[in-house]
Design a protein around this nucleic acid. Sequence first.
DNA 1: ACAATACTGAAGTATTTACTTGACAATTTC
DNA 2: GAAATTGTCAAGTAAATACTTCAGTATTGT
Lengths: 110, 110
Amino acid sequence: MRNRSIRIERVFHALGDSTRRAILDRLVDAPASVSKLAEPLGITVTAVMQHLQILEEAKLVHTEKTGRVRTCRIEPAGFDALEEWVRAHRTAWERRLDRLGELLAEEDAG
Amino acid sequence: MRNRSIRIERVFHALGDSTRRAILDRLVDAPASVSKLAEPLGITVTAVMQHLQILEEAKLVHTEKTGRVRTCRIEPAGFDALEEWVRAHRTAWERRLDRLGELLAEEDAG
DNA sequence: ACAATACTGAAGTATTTACTTGACAATTTC
DNA sequence: GAAATTGTCAAGTAAATACTTCAGTATTGT
């Protein structure tokens, strides 16, 4: 079994904010420094740092500081966890509908 | 082109709360009334109503009132939008990594 | 008709959250 | 080594959010 222990809680919390999603949108194109991320968002570097912390906890972003600049990149683990969650819920729901369908078919036949 | 106009904004906002996710978990198993949803959550029916409104706006849940009871069911549209978003972001990111790989390979060769 | 059930609406509260400011630390660059 | 760049820390604020209570309104059962 793969390490699925990334708390989906954190992933959803992280993605629940539009600024953080904007950060992800940006990082999908290319890695960026904290100040480069802040610039188009019109918020302070401090604010971006706070968002980055949440994104890191959700394993949606990985950051690394070399010298005085912190480089931020997409990390796929959080996305994996999210996709997994959606898939699990959808299939559970579809299975139920199938069972329901069978029951109705039986009723019709009987 | 399919109807993708469900605001992903709303989907993420809806899923950003653990009580709402618990409601979804419950509805995946079976449809339920508002009071049945409230019972195991230990919150008032009013609170559940407020959550349901948000889940409906995100098209994750559909509710329908017949008589005095409102029945709540999973609606797949919101899940579709979510899956779509994850996939789009992942592929964009992977495409970039591929381009980067090619560039590095060229550098090595040259 | 009356009581019980199931939800709805308005209004209030306490906490969380996104953001700021301002002071500071660590690199680069000149 | 002085000055600019880039990030970090602590503390504060205003708005959003998840709840609550209480007072209704339909609908159903006796």
